[in-house]
Every structure is written in structure tokens, then in C-alpha cells.
Amino acid sequence: MSIQAVIFDWAGTTIDYGSRAPIVAFQKAFENVGIAITEAEIRQDMGLDKYNHIQKIISLPAVQNDWQARFQVLPTSDDCDRIYRDFKAILLASLTNFAKLKPGMTSVIDYLDDHQIAYGTTTGYDSEMLSIVLPIAVKQGYLPAVNITSDQTNGIGRPAAAMLELACDQLEVTDAATVMKVGDSVNDILEGQNADAITVGIIDGSNLMGLSEAEFNSLSESDRAALRTQVAQAYQKVGADYILESMAELPALIDSINQPVAND
């Protein structure tokens, strides 16, 4: 078996170290209606498309309680729509500040190009958000062959397999066992599993880690090691096939998988 295609996530995986842009936008959008939400409350459902993610947040018991205390009623679908519109405006205005490629991505791109391995993306961004980050990524040398959002799958996003399956169809890869899904959240791993692909979780700069590059680099070696272990355990818990400390390790992993098996 050899890897025929690699499907990446965007924020926290290939760009935006720590997946900071969505966190900031979620918090500001809820703050604008007088509701404080924590990073932990946001990150537990990262990887979903953004509208469904807001539905998840607004359904949290703590958020419902705070909402009822403030407005004397529970939040409605109209409230969800309003928060989503505000969130999207905030995110669109800030995405250009969070589109830098993560460390190791340049060498990964060169490796995939040199070995003629196709690569594409699935994402929780919608098409308008993607239209902002993609040109910035292209200027840095990152040009995925396909980029799938839930806009293209009738609103079906992660953890379902629909986006990943569409990416494979567009890349004309028919054997899911030769496809590698690389992501930085639990929902990325679940998406890959649901599509029967090989799943790879990235530790450093991931949503699961949640720190900016400066914040991570300011930690002691022992604190970095402890945090990496914590993230690895989260991937292990959901059954990721492989767990890498950084994206720079991906070429070696693909080489090891593509090694021919010697006959006995």
C-alpha cells in the first residue's frame, strides 16, 4: 500500500498556530450579547462547521443558564443566526492576521510535490472564509488541489465523512485506505475514521493544545512535555492511527508507510 492523497485541515493544522482566529471570534461574538464563554467550552467542539459550532455552544447548560438569567428566556434559532452573523463578520475581518503557515509545512509541501502525492483540504470554514485564507496560503507556496467546505456537501460537515469523501472523489482517489487525513482536533480524527482513511493528529500548534506559538515557546521544557502528553492522550482516546509532534515529521511517516513489505 502507498499513500495516494493527503487531506489536511486548515486552522491549527496547516495555518494559524493554536487555531486562534476562531477562538477570538467566538468569544467576541458571544461577548457582544453579554455572554462570556471559555476557551475550553469552545474547543471541545472545534472542527465542526462554524454555524453548527455556535449551535453547540449556545446549547451548553452554562450558556443556557447565563442567557436565561440575562434575558429571562432561553436562546432561540434567531439568536443563533444573529450570533453567527456577528461571529462571521469578526472572523472575516481577522483571518488575514492568522493565515501564516505553521512550522514544517514548507518541507511537507515540497515532499508531497516531489513524490507526486496529491493533497487537498476539508475545513470548518465556509467558502467565504476560505476565499480569504487561500490566496494568502498560495503566496506562501501552499496550493491544495481541492478545498472542501460543508457548503459543498449540503451542510454536512465533520465528524461525518462527506467532505473527505468529496475531496477524494475530486482527486480521483478511490481507495480510502490510501488516503491520510491530517488534523488538529478530535473531529478531524473522527472524520477520517468515518471515511475509512488513515488518521494523523498533530500536537504542536493544534486546537487541542490551544496556545499561540509565543505562549508555547515561553513554557519550560517540562511544561511543554506535559502538554504534549495531554494532547497525545486526547488523540489516543479517539483512536488516531498516528500522532506526530509536529508537521515536520509527516514526510518520514509517509515514507515508513510506503516502504514495501518484504516477503517471508
Results as ranks from 00 to 15, higher is better:
Ala93Leu: 10
Ala93Gln: 14
Ala93Cys: 11
Ser94Leu: 13
Ser94Ile: 11
Leu95Glu: 07
Thr96Gln: 10
Thr96Pro: 11
Thr96Lys: 14
Thr96Ala: 14
Asn97His: 09
Asn97Arg: 07
Phe98Trp: 04
Ala99Gln: 12
Ala99Cys: 11
Lys100Pro: 06
Lys100Asp: 10
Leu101Trp: 08
Leu101Asn: 11
Leu101Arg: 14
Lys102Trp: 02
Pro103His: 04
Gly104Cys: 03
Gly104Gln: 02
Gly104Thr: 02
Thr106Leu: 13
Thr106Met: 10
Val108Tyr: 11
Val108His: 11
Ile109Tyr: 05
Ile109Asn: 06
Asp110Trp: 03
Asp110Gly: 04
Tyr111Ile: 07
Tyr111Val: 08
Tyr111Lys: 11
Tyr111Trp: 10
Tyr111Asp: 10
Leu112Trp: 10
Leu112Lys: 06
Leu112Glu: 04
Leu112His: 12
Asp113Ala: 14
Asp113Met: 05
Asp113Phe: 03
Asp113Thr: 15
Asp114Thr: 10
Asp114Ser: 13
Asp114Met: 09
His115Met: 08
His115Ser: 05
His115Arg: 14
His115Lys: 15
Gln116Asp: 15
Gln116Gly: 02
Gln116Cys: 12
Ile117Gln: 11
Ala118Tyr: 01
Ala118Gly: 02
Ala118Ile: 01
Gly120Arg: 00
Thr121Gln: 11
Thr122Val: 08
Gly124Leu: 03
Ser127Phe: 04
Glu128Ser: 13
Glu128Gln: 12
Met129Asp: 08
Met129Cys: 14
Met129Pro: 01
Met129Ser: 13
Met129Arg: 05
Ile132Asn: 05
Ile132Asp: 03
Val133Arg: 03
Val133Ile: 06
Leu134Ala: 15
Pro135Gln: 08
Ala137Val: 15
Ala137Phe: 13
Val138His: 09
Val138Ser: 01
Val138Leu: 03
Lys139Asp: 13
Gln140Thr: 10
Gln140Trp: 09
Gln140Phe: 07
Gly141Gln: 05
Gly141Met: 12
Gly141His: 06
Leu143Lys: 10
Pro144Ser: 10
Ala145Ser: 08
Ala145Cys: 02
Ala145Ile: 00
Ala145Trp: 00
Val146Ile: 09
Val146Asn: 00
Asn147Arg: 02
